[in-house]
Design a protein around this nucleic acid. Structure first.
Lengths: 221, 221
DNA sequence: GCGACTTTGTGCCTCCCTTCACAAAGTCGT
DNA sequence: ACGACTTTGTGAAGGGAGGCACAAAGTCGC
């Protein structure tokens, strides 16, 4: 089964969400000059069960060797290919408030072909400011960024009120992948993919578990 | 069914993860002086189906009125109670690099009873620095923060190499809820809840979808 | 006070994901 | 060259979550 076939048949979303974890574990192994790894070892490194790892990898193809395991370099490159990480992914960050500036300064984006090519804000008082060595641009620059630089991913770091407008700008310019840090549900055409990251939600889920743990203790000590 | 009963019976994790979204939508409605809302309307605001919303809420109890809908204030307060947001949740941020400083400055934490009570770092060259109006403390302060201030949630914003050590410090001090921004899988005792937020993973998932979209187009235009 | 209407709460069904378990396949020692 | 051993890849079973559809329950108008 070729990579193209696998992509056409469709990898379950749940499996896709784990692939980056496998890739990271493999990269770490490669850095330690490990040449080969079993599903058991790799699964432990990625924090999943070995059966799940094997099934996930089987969606991509047969890249292991029975009785031996997986070639680290080879598997890493296959996963990277499946994720589409062989190409460059230009990223723009919209909203230069506290969070936006933090994201602009954060090095995590630079990994794996994600390049922050522009910082934008709709507020003309912020446009022109220098943030993390880049000049903040107006929203009107978006269409040009898409056409001339192949901008593909937009990161929304605006306050909740401005998020939908920012998203609309991105979509109108042709961006079809959005990472949303604002605490709102964004409405988008169905060919646009949105992923949401919300610190407040995460904390509230943690609160539930902490709360629940304390309660369970009180009920059945 | 009382809240305590509901908590004992157990709300599915998938439902818990959506409760913060409902709560946020309700808070927005309350701010607009809306007194009552139907499952259809609330579901739309939270971006889920009405059937799912009703099922999720049914895990908490029967707080709706048939033929009418839900009382906004009442439901908000029931969800807040279920999530454990009636109490205060002191939070500590560990790791004062780029990301840690950003999180310290980010106001999103202040919502809903989450108070950042301490910023920590293991590097003595950073300890004592002023970040977002707070003095950075050494890791050794953790046990005291737990005992004297009820510290309950730890946020890990260290580089990947230091994340496990930071987590061990938190757990040893008695923290049982951890929000992990580092790109590693943390090993913890089973009574500790860890949630992971990873920008790189999110971007890679977006890359997959962008990639796949382009591929599907090429195959069947 | 009663009937028509609205909207919730939930039993049931379906689908997808995870886990189990084993046959297939390849390696390594002799 | 062959047999014992290891580890993958996958068919089948099991479990859980989401959607459907309707009975139950309460409101509102008359």
């Amino acid at each position: 089964m070729s990579t193209a076939e696998a992509a056409r048949r469709g990898v379950p979303d749940a499996a896709v969400a784990r692939l980056p974890g496998y890739l990271r574990a493999l990269t770490a192994l490669a850095a330690d000059d490990v040449a080969s790894v079993s599903s058991e070892e790799l699964a432990a490194a990625a924090g999943v069960s070995s059966a799940m790892l094997r099934k996930d990898l089987s969606y991509l193809g047969s890249y292991g060797v029975r009785g031996v395991g997986y070639d680290v370099e080879r598997l890493a490159s296959e996963i990277a290919a499946a994720l589409g990480l062989t190409q460059d992914w230009p990223v723009a960050i919209v909203g230069m408030g506290n969070l936006g500036r933090a994201l602009a300064a954060y090095r995590g984006f630079a990994e794996r072909g994600f390049r922050v090519i522009a910082l934008l804000d709709h507020d003309e008082r912020v446009v022109g400011d220098e943030v993390a060595g880049e000049t903040v641009r107006p929203m009107e620059d978006l269409p040009r960024l898409v056409e001339e630089q192949g901008l593909a991913i937009g990161v929304i770091a605006t306050p909740p009120e401005g998020a939908q407008a920012a998203c609309d700008h991105l979509v109108a310019a042709g961006v079809r992948s959005v990472l949303n840090f604002a605490a709102v549900v964004l409405a988008v055409p169905e060919d646009v993919t949105v992923r949401k990251v919300d610190l407040s939600t995460e904390l509230q889920i943690l609160a539930f578990h902490g709360h629940r743990g304390a309660l369970a203790e009180a009920v059945a000590p």
